[in-house]
Design a protein around this nucleic acid. Sequence first.
DNA 1: AGCACGCCGACT
DNA 2: GTCGGCGTGCTC
Length: 750
Amino acid sequence: MTNLVVEVAVSSTPVYAGNNDGTLSYRVAPELSGQVQMGSLVLVPLGKRRAVGVVVAIKERTDRTELKDVAAVLVKEFLPPEMIEIGRYVAGRYVCPLAVAVNALMPPAAGRRLERRWCWLPSGEEGVNGAISLVSCLPAPAGDVAEYLSRRGAAWESQLLQLGPRREVRAALEALKAHGLVRNEWSWRGMPKERRLPTDVEGAAQAAAVKPDGTGRHITLDAAQLRAATSINAALGRGGTFLLYGVTGSGKTEVYLSCAAEALARGYQVMFLVPEHSLIPQMVTRINQRLEAEVAVVHGELADGERAAVWERARIGKVRVIVGTRAALFTPMPRLGLIVVDEEHAGSYKQDTAPRYDAREVAIKRGQLQRAVVVLGSATPSTEIFYLAGQGKIHLLELPQRAGNAGLPRVEIVDLRAEFHDGHHGILSRRLVEEINGVLTAGRQAILFLNRRGYAPYVLCRQCGHVPLCRHCAVALTYHRDGTLRCHYCGYIERAEGKCPVCGGNLSRLGSGTQRVEEEVRALWPGARILRADRDTTAKKGQWEKIYRTFAGGEADILIGTQTITKGMDFPGVTLVGVVNADLSLYQPDFRARERTFQLLTQVAGRAGRRDAPGTVVIQTYNPQDPAIALAAFQDYQRFYAQEIAMRRRLGYPPFVKLVRLGFTGSDEAEVIAAAHEVAELISNAESNIQVLGPAPGYPSRLKDLYRWQLMLKVPGWSRYKNRLTPILAPYIGRRTIRMIVDVGPINPW
DNA sequence: AGCACGCCGACT
DNA sequence: GTCGGCGTGCTC
């Protein structure tokens, strides 16, 4: 009988320097050996506690002799092999411990957790009396513990710990155990409840409204849509990656649904990914209208039990369609045939905590592993993906026309320099005011977009130059209309003083946020019904849905908002979209600022006049000549892409190099900088082909009391270099005082 | 990440 | 005298 040894990715991850993949080895006792396989969920001893973990490797023997035993096999067939493969891919590509990657693949605990249960052993009056006399010479709370246990027979450890100081109760329990008065065992506390799968109520109602004869489910495609769908369908069962590039309103979703119907008909499972969870309901609605299959949703705000229910039912193939945000990608689906990544260009497909994966790349990998077709869709594809399409590595499918021949909106660019020159200093230009007047007169709706919440982004003393800063971050505080100053990075709030705390001078509120826009709009159109949607008005659950419904139902005239209002929303009554300040996103210190600005303006413009009435878009800017703005006005993606890719090639940015960001944080700035320098040196010396930029401060340079510095690496080819770079970085991963984060292919500025 | 140990200030 | 602050070290 051979001794099996398993590598276990423990879910409460013991990541520390020197334990690179975060996995631990355990011996498998002979009687358990038949029950363990790759992907099994096991219970293992870890220090003084027990932990659950997943078997990621099985070996015959090991050089280590003093291994502990696997305590129990909880679920023999748990993670399917392709999901463990995904875990390895994520860990390798994004430089994180395997255990962290595997953790992302796990269903939530689903209300079950392991806890020690203590039982009282002495029986009969005599036994109890004897025990109690023994207890009197044990550490302090032993009496309380003994009384509690003897009365109930057994209790959970967390209940007992409430009887006194944790430490003493623990000591008392150990002493009682040593005297043979109590016994403990690990068991599951609370069992998962049978749950209804999370789905979308509104969507379900609409699906129910579909007539039983099946009308309403029929999908009519135009020629371009049909060509795209045919190509995709032809790849079902074999796999392949497609970019569905279709201008806004060209009907990409119809293509997805048509292909999904075909995939389902052939017995496959289908996965839809959307950039953020507010977009799930409308996708579910459309799926329910068109497809006859049970749809489940997956996103971060589901209760654990609901997520676990979807996870399990998808794993056994009962759920055939899921719709979710990037985390849904890790739902096991044995018959996966189609993965749709909608709005592929969205930055939210990159996770900004470990594992820092890019859902598009992982989707493609998963497609390869399971021979599933991957369809990335966008009206403004990311430069990297469009480049891959140009290289023939991804099949390009185009939808060049708006469906139903709806025209493109008329886009007007307002030059704020001229506006200023003519003495107009208001937030809304004369042109925009005129357009809003027209919309209100016609009884239509308008959207005003400004990507900045609050009233004034900063406050300044004109006498001494003092600017109130956050106490925890290196950023100016934003003035809010409720008379507070707020940090938009950490949430710190203080009362706004009337006078400068330094010199007593008058404070000016500079710049404009959505609250100021709202104020101005209310002053100009006192009778208009106005809604504002930003993090301050939509933070609580259900608030955004309410605003959305009110506006979509025509019960408001003007919607003012930040980013949230731009994403794929379909408001039929909107004939005017105003971009209050297009320059805000253009001047972020990031090589992707142009791309983001172009995408944002194009998407925003796509919100105007999708139906019968032609739409108008007014873009206010101080830089009307900038290509990102000018080309967005014409919805000219191709020309924008041509300029962008040329710039990337010239300056050495992705896709021509892989960027790797190394972020360093700590409470001692000098040590943070020193660590960054140290790593910079190490890499420069070891790899002359890797360009090391920095150290440079992050933005903000201090966040929540931690200093932030970074290095940016330009790596010629990541798959070649990651195996060389990882060992250099390994000793710095898992350190405590100065932390280093590795972000491969960062999307969002740091 | 937990969870322990261990060494120093403020309180019944 | 204790309670508990978090620095440091360990977990197969």
